[in-house]
Nucleic acid binder design. Sequence first.
DNA 1: CTGCCACTTGAAGTCAGATTGAGGTCAACA
DNA 2: TGTTGACCTCAATCTGACTTCAAGTGGCAG
Lengths: 134, 134
Amino acid sequence: MELLDIGDVSERSGTSPSALRYYEKRGLIEAISRKGLRRQYEPSILPRLALIRLCQAAGFTLEETAEMLPDEPRFTLDRDKITARADDIDAQIEDLEKLSKLLRHIAKCTAPSHAECPNFQAVLNSLPHKKVPR
Amino acid sequence: MELLDIGDVSERSGTSPSALRYYEKRGLIEAISRKGLRRQYEPSILPRLALIRLCQAAGFTLEETAEMLPDEPRFTLDRDKITARADDIDAQIEDLEKLSKLLRHIAKCTAPSHAECPNFQAVLNSLPHKKVPR
DNA sequence: CTGCCACTTGAAGTCAGATTGAGGTCAACA
DNA sequence: TGTTGACCTCAATCTGACTTCAAGTGGCAG
């Protein structure tokens, strides 16, 4: 059987070994065996990690992700949660579009002070209370 | 003179007193005087706080924001930084659009496993390494 | 004058998602 | 056989933006 050493998994998934151990502690993944002390994984760990990355990118916490990812290789994510999250993301896209427009406006607005620019005022009040991640 | 007590500022800006003190410690704002121990602010603190909120929403850290906000009431943000951030945000919007589409696909895709769905594979690889804030 | 109560302080705590450090193990290569 | 280097464990630390805590202060209503 072609098991993957944690080093391979780390390299091929872009997830650091410490993160993999951390995920294991949080119940997201599992090593199928050890070679000496080293964790050995089934190749299916790779798509599983991809799915974890997806969930993270979508804003699920690791805990939520752990709940959503069943143990079997055939992961079936919760469709309602997924759809709800897609809706959230769409809403956030709208906020970000406003924000981008406002920023570009500020970059070229020559009003004596932004505080006096009606455009600025208007958008500020409809600002998202979310952050843009870095 | 119409100075604002920290309590007024807190209420009118939606920023908690502890956050205002925190901003002061981080060099973003300043009280113009005290009444007893209580901080008193100039009314211009309000648009300044609005601008801080904007910077935060745009993903600047408080430190970056402090650097960008000059001391004068007439704040002129750094136009290049602002534009660069707008570009970042636009890029992120694109990522989020992909993500949303992928999520909606997953919610209705009936492939035996997402790992086997070519659509899934394709989008995963172009995934942002950023998070969606909650 | 008394008491209330929102403020004051500095230090410590919170959260998520890891990373880092110290001290230890072990498979593989020369 | 010895060395290397990546892994191991567990606990502690980090980041950012605050909040909470305990103990203290003081303006103002009664």
